[in-house]
Amino acid sequence: MTLYSVIFYMLAALILVSTGLAVTRRNLVHAVVYLVISFFGSAMLFYLLGAPLLAALEVIIYAGAIMVLFIFIIMMLKVEAFEEQFFPIRQWIPAAGMCLAFIVAGTLIIMGDPESRIPLKAAVAEPVFFGHYLFRKHWLAIEIVSLLLLVAVVAVLYLGKNTEKKNEDRR
């Protein structure tokens, strides 16, 4: 048991507990804040697993941008008054079935690979080399992703404009 493995298990516990709390919260703002803690834990885990650039991006994009977007929408929609039916029985059956199938398949996959018991060696992917690799080998994928983000922006603008026009019509 090295120091790294102690840190890993502590981070894993932090991530799992905060995600579990987030999933079961009734108040949406509390859920999002617990999820921010979970994403910070994931960022530290990425750093531990040797991906400092991705750790920074996780904090900036996931914990920063996406969660703030969620908070904005929750504040905009005034959903505090919305009484959610909490975990209805009807939806437990498909959820339990899927969880069972998932656990069985996951255990089989982990048990079927004896090599996965070997502890991982610590290594760090320097951001410089990672960036060079990314732009040399995956330049087309980067372009496609940037196009995807542009399409998302156009779609969001279109959706926003459309609802505004409908509201004016209704008035």
Partner: peptide, 20 residues
Amino acid sequence: MIVPYSHVIMLAGILFLMGM
């Protein structure tokens, strides 16, 4: 030496299960 790869996969699996 950090942890076996199977533990990382287990963590990711439990996280995926919670999301699902």
